[in-house]
Design a protein around this nucleic acid. Structure first.
Lengths: 342, 342
DNA sequence: TTGTAAGCGTTATCAT
DNA sequence: ATGATAACGCTTACAA
């Protein structure tokens, strides 16, 4: 195997008998190139299998063709969905994706992210919740002058900088569903109160129930943290009390799985004696026994929208980005863990 | 907010009153710089918050400080573990991670990957199974002249290019465990036969059993594909037959979860009437009811080793990489889904 | 130990 | 419509 040096723009120019400036024009789709010259150059490019050097290009144009993904997400399934979604859009357009896990609670989060961004000279940054909810990060992003898009459950930013999933409406739908099953004694296990998504899901649920004249008892609202273990803890608290709810809605599938575990321990039949529902539609949701009724988040779609939006910002100098849809609707998925009250 | 231009090496040189060549020496840790000059320069660097432009650096030295991760892994949990492991090592050393999902079965896989690599000018590439098992990709990687490390269950390559997990030994341990529980009627649901990991796990299991004089009946070896759905299908086949095994070992946790589902459908008690075990120690394994006995893969550790190995290859011109450990041992995790035969 | 000067492969400026 | 030529910010021979 002979190691060939990659062809450069100079090779193309020389062989095509033009200047490199003209080749550069073709590369960047300039209109002011003659039809003949263009095809001639294009042929040479194909023959040589020439492909521009991104580093040189970046150095000259102060662009990197690199997008960054910042997150601190315990849910790996969500992350994988996002990554595939982003790459589906960006890799065809010549961008690559650099990932950057971080710690939501870290003192140095903003600093870390800025270092990451400036070191890699990222053209744009996508931020996943809950990191996306941090206003000081968002401000730093704005100050950096780079394109960015946040995924969230709340419209925290201009349409060009955000894609939101309407968790509130989805939770309200779950409430309606519970009410229609005849449940009135309903408990809710919240997510961390610092996360917007937790608030949205709770408020939506309350709202939905109130349409049916049902009010969540305050002692049946317990604060979880989206982890399986905490779900178990909260479920114990709810199911060992003197009076038991007939239905429990958990802020995510992990905690709902915890509820199932406790119900099983205590010999409480799901869904006959207790209905349980979660949020996310994790892999977990369909695997557990009984399978979980839950809310499916259109994660992939959010990633596609965010990426499209961002690339528009980058390439059209912020024009058009606000026209890409900024809102998606999660949907109810009914499985085995919920049933009519008998 | 005033937009400041980033300081360059020229700024540092000018202010420190030296040539840029000397600053460059300090940046790259050259030994031949006077102590005074060094501290003087270092101070200016700190004052200016100067950080070298990776693109310019790369253009001049034909390095990118970018590592690539190539995979086609249905298990998102595994992926997240790997990513965090890789980044833990590389981000301190100034490298970033670019991810590249791909399709194992794609005709154009090698071509896709090469395009990815040369476009991003990656300094090194980590390849996850099962993509890592493709010899034509490995050959292309070698030809590319770039550093690469493969993760696998088999020593497919030189020590400097691979980190293997000894799935065979782990499966043998599971076999021993089954035998010690008194099981003799044991079934095995394999992974895709095209994957090395499937073969290793099966051979190890057979080997372990044979030490106890137990042989796997051929009709109790059924071929799965590592998916939950296929696990269900295989479990049906095994559990609806006239004669039933007392224990089932599945090639991964997803399929083991499928077995649990079917057992539940058929009213077969696990572990009283049937022992079930998986492989991976997924999140799933601890969430299902009963929780799964399984094999835990030291994924994070593999990622750390692979990254260390690769950066050694890159920075020391292949010296030392072979001295980083190339093998890790998965371990048995006993939970609720297995029990003594009664 | 330090400095000079020539690249690295693009894009951008300004002519023509 | 096309082309010289100068950036871009760094590394690396080669000198001194």
């Amino acid at each position: 195997m002979i190691k060939m040096k990659q062809a450069t723009i100079n090779d193309v120019a020389r062989i095509a008998g033009v200047s490199k400036r003209t080749v550069s024009r073709v590369l960047n789709g300039s209109l002011s190139v003659g039809e003949n010259t263009r095809t001639k150059i294009q042929n040479v490019i194909n023959d040589l299998k020439y492909s521009p050097n991104t580093q040189a290009r970046g150095l000259a144009s102060s662009r990197s063709y690199l997008l960054g993904l910042i997150y601190d997400n315990p849910d790996a399934l969500y992350l994988d969905d996002v990554q595939r979604g982003v790459l589906e859009v960006c890799s065809n357009l010549g961008y690559e994706l650099v990932v950057h896990p971080c710690r939501y609670k870290s003192e140095t989060l903003v600093q870390d992210c800025l270092r990451f961004i400036s070191r890699s000279k990222l053209d744009g940054i996508i931020v996943l919740p809950p990191v996306s909810e941090l206003e000081d990060l968002a401000q730093a992003l704005r100050d950096s002058g780079r394109a960015y898009v946040r995924l969230s459950s709340v419209a925290l930013d201009d349409a060009k900088h955000i894609v939101v999933s309407d968790d509130r409406a989805a939770s309200a739908e779950m409430a309606r569903y519970f009410a229609q099953l005849g449940h009135e004694h309903i408990a809710f296990i919240t997510g961390p109160q610092a996360y917007k998504s937790s608030i949205e899901r709770m408020e939506g649920f309350k709202l939905g129930l109130s349409a049916y004249g049902i009010k969540l008892r305050s002692d049946w609202i317990v604060e979880g943290n989206n982890s399986y273990e905490k779900g178990i803890e909260c479920a114990r608290q709810l199911l060992l009390a003197s009076e038991r709810p007939t239905a429990i809605y958990a802020n995510n599938d992990q905690m709902a799985a915890g509820v199932l575990k406790v119900a099983h321990e205590l010999g409480i039949q799901v869904p006959q004696q207790l209905s349980v529902a979660g949020f996310d539609d994790n892999m977990l949701a369909s695997r557990v026994i009984p399978s979980l009724t839950t809310i499916r988040r259109p994660v992939r779609q959010m990633a596609l929208l965010a990426t499209t939006k961002m690339i528009m910002s980058i390439e059209n100098n912020d024009k058009g980005a606000e026209n890409v849809a900024a809102k998606v609707a999660p949907t109810l998925v009914v499985r085995e863990s919920t049933a009519k009250l008998t």
